[in-house]
């Protein structure tokens, strides 16, 4: 056996390969990141409820403290327990989604193997700061969730999450009058930072409040599926 020779059989997925080792197309992976308390887990839960009847779904959570977010999803029974996996991050949630994605890749692959075939895997980051973004080796698209109560100057401040995420969600619009946040200003600032990248405003307390995010996810999934068929 000679070292350093190229593989003679199909290399297994080591990163973001679009196919699984058996050649089938893998699930679309969407990452959700954002500051603590902005509503990432609530958004994931609402997305699961909105999409689970039509799609085969799974969720990976990256808690700062072990299984808090995973347990929230379990308690609210948004998906069967075997479709939810928790990754531990050693107090560095941004490392697990960006610099060293190995544990998250194992989690998504294990879910596909255990409960697949899957259409969509949501990877939720632990609550982090405005610089947290997902590696393209882990997810195909990422959503950044902020909220109006965190300050209406967050879109203006920018940062990689706000400026580069494929979708910016401004959550808790129902609180805007109480915290003195100017939604028009947030929308204007976001447009300035993000150019043509989409921004949606949500209030998850309202009827079907997650619809703008769910619609965007369906569009991404349609694009992913047709790219595989092409």
């Amino acid at each position: 056996m000679h070292l350093g020779h190229p593989h003679d059989h199909a290399a297994p997925a080591v990163s973001a390969d679009a196919t699984r080792p058996d050649g089938s197309r893998r699930a679309l992976r969407i990452g959700l990141g954002g500051p603590v308390g902005s509503g990432k887990t609530a958004t994931v839960a609402a997305l699961c409820r909105a999409l689970r009847d039509r799609l085969s779904l799974a969720v990976v959570t990256n808690d700062i403290y072990t299984r808090e977010d995973a347990e929230f999803l379990l308690r609210h029974a948004v998906l069967p327990p075997e479709r939810i996996a928790a990754v531990e991050t050693g107090a560095c949630p941004h490392t697990a989604i960006r610099d060293d994605i190995s544990a998250n890749l194992e989690a998504v692959e294990d879910l596909e193997e255990a409960v697949g075939p899957l259409d969509l895997i949501l990877v939720e980051s632990g609550g982090d700061n405005l610089t947290a973004t997902f590696s393209r080796g882990l997810v195909d698209a990422q959503v950044f969730v902020i909220d109006v109560a965190g300050g209406d100057d967050i879109p203006r401040k920018g940062g990689p999450g706000v400026t580069t995420a494929d979708l910016l969600v401004v959550n808790k619009t129902d609180l805007a009058p109480y915290v003195g946040s100017d939604l028009d200003r947030m929308a204007r600032d976001a447009r300035e930072q993000r150019g043509d990248l989409p921004v949606v405003f949500t209030s998850l307390t309202g009827e079907d409040g997650v619809a703008p995010v769910a619609d965007w996810v369906r569009e991404r999934l349609a694009a992913w599926t047709s790219a595989g068929a092409a």
Partner: peptide, 23 residues
């Protein structure tokens, strides 16, 4: 678990038949 994670990184960094066989 750490062995599996290291394997992924190692196979990308230094592709080799012995790593494939171990995986």
């Amino acid at each position: 678990r750490l062995g599996r994670q290291l394997m992924r990184a190692a196979r990308t960094a230094w592709p080799a038949a012995e790593l494939d066989a171990l995986a």
